[in-house]
C-alpha cells in the first residue's frame, strides 16, 4: 500500500539542489532540476553502492554514480551509460501546500 511522506518545505530545495532522506529501510535522493522535482532510490543498480551524492547536473537532470561513473536520468531512473544497465527505482513527487512529499511503497 503506497504511503505519502513529508520531505521538506519547497523553499528548502531550490533549483540545482538535492536532499537525501530515509524512510524505513529505503534511502532516497530528491533533486530539483530547474524547478522540476524528481526522486530516485539512493542505490546504483550496478553494484548497489550509494548513488544520490554523486555529481548532479541540473541542466541534463542526471546524477553520476560516484563508484563507477554510470550516469542516471533522474526523470526516468534509466542509466544513460554503462556499466549499469538496469533502471533505479523512482518515486512520484507531490507538492502539497508548499510542502514536498513523496509517494513510497
Amino acid at each position: 500500500m503506497p504511503e505519502i511522506i513529508d520531505i521538506c518545505a519547497i523553499t528548502e530545495l531550490p533549483p540545482g539542489s538535492r536532499k537525501l532522506v530515509e524512510w524505513e529501510d529505503l534511502e532516497i535522493g530528491v533533486f530539483n532540476c530547474g524547478g522540476s522535482l524528481y526522486a530516485i532510490e539512493d542505490r546504483c543498480s550496478h553494484d548497489n553502492g550509494p548513488l544520490a551524492h554523486g555529481d548532479f547536473d541540473p541542466d541534463t537532470c542526471t546524477v553520476e554514480c560516484p563508484r563507477h561513473g554510470s550516469l542516471f536520468d533522474l526523470r526516468t531512473g534509466n542509466p544513460k551509460t554503462l556499466p549499469a544497465y538496469a533502471p533505479v527505482d523512482t518515486f512520484p513527487v507531490i507538492i502539497d501546500d508548499d510542502l514536498i512529499k513523496l509517494e513510497v511503497d
Binding site: E64, G69, S70, K80, T81, L82
Partner: peptide
C-alpha cells in the same frame, strides 16, 4: 565517447 566505459569506471 565514454558511454560504455565512463571515465570513472576504473
Amino acid at each position: 565517447i565514454a558511454t560504455l566505459i565512463p571515465a570513472n569506471d576504473n
